[in-house]
């Protein structure tokens, strides 16, 4: 029999990492899981309720509504931002002095704090003093994001496109810059059309950066909180209340810790699941060629 004493001491080396991960991720997450299966009246009075809160959350029409809104919002911004970002990246000049100027301009929205982005658009879209709001009103279109839910959605989506398309564009630009020029020249000599150059020369080589871009946008858009909170406060009515905002009102506004904890766990699982589905489907299609 082999003595394993000296081997066991190696575990000491990983202790710091285990502790950091435990305190930063595992412990808070397990606390939430713990809350989600209890009814908490005060610090000493709690009742184990099993999966009741989960059932209740999944049956809650306001949760379902917020979820549908969330998915609609994420899908919409994704469908617009990814093609738009690629289009911008392709239209950018390469290897010229203007390139860096454009890149800096593109990066500006990404450098602005999120609540400031909300504030900027809150003022920008106001029908009385905002440039956008006043311009639209001058065209004779009635536009009021605090009164009409359609207008609120349009404003929110425009804001998200303004805020995040740059990310896709910058990533796509980096991907395009790494394509060797002979690939383009060969396609030109073959007589490939602009669309064919994009489809067969650029897109295959952009695949990995676009995967990252879409993953980041999926995660971020599912977690959106600050900007709609500042811009519309979830209104009018509940028309722009997304998952994170409903969750906050439940946990911080009403102190329903049990249901809020169950909600959090479901929310977390949803994001993980969607990202995993996306990632595996991309990887599978890669394996298929």
């Amino acid at each position: 029999m082999i003595k394993g004493v000296s081997n066991n001491r190696a575990w000491l080396a990983v202790v710091p990492v285990v502790l950091v991960v435990a305190f930063s991720a595992v412990v808070p997450l397990m606390t939430v899981v713990n809350y989600s299966v209890q009814d908490i009246f005060d610090v000493d009075t709690r009742l184990f309720v099993g999966l009741d809160w989960y059932r209740e959350t999944l049956r809650d029409p306001r949760f379902i509504d917020a979820l549908l809104r969330q998915v609609t919002f994420s899908a919409t911004v994704l469908v617009i931002e990814v093609p738009l970002g690629i289009w911008i990246a392709r239209a950018l000049p390469r290897d010229s002095r203007a390139t860096s100027a454009f890149l800096i301009l593109l990066a500006i929205p990404l450098l602005i704090p999120w609540n400031v982005v909300g504030t900027i658009w809150q003022i920008f879209a106001r029908p009385d003093i905002g440039l956008l709001g006043v311009s639209v009103a001058a065209l004779g279109i009635s536009f009021n994001y605090t009164g009409s839910s359609v207008d609120a959605w349009i404003t929110l989506i425009l804001m998200d496109i303004w805020h995040w398309t740059s990310l896709v564009a910058l990533l796509a630009f980096a991907g395009l810059a790494s394509i060797p020029s002979p690939c383009y020249q060969a396609a030109m000599l073959d007589g490939a059309s602009t669309w064919q150059v994009f489809r067969y020369v650029e897109l295959p080589r952009l695949k990995s950066v676009l995967t990252i871009a879409v993953l980041l946008r999926v995660m971020d858009s599912l977690m959106i909180y600050t900007e709609p909170f500042v811009l519309t406060g979830g209104g009018p009515g509940n028309s722009t209340t997304f998952l994170s905002q409903y969750l906050t009102s439940m946990a911080v506004g009403q102190f329903d810790l049990g249901p809020a904890a169950a909600f959090s766990v479901l929310y977390f699982l949803l994001i993980v699941l969607l990202c995993w589905l996306f990632y595996t489907s991309v990887m599978r299609s890669e394996a298929d060629g």
Partner: peptide, 17 residues
């Protein structure tokens, strides 16, 4: 495009997909 001159490069240039 119009010259119809075939060009083969030092790098192996093909369409990956």
């Amino acid at each position: 495009r119009e010259r119809k001159v075939g060009l083969v490069y030092q790098a192996f240039v093909n369409y990956p997909t």
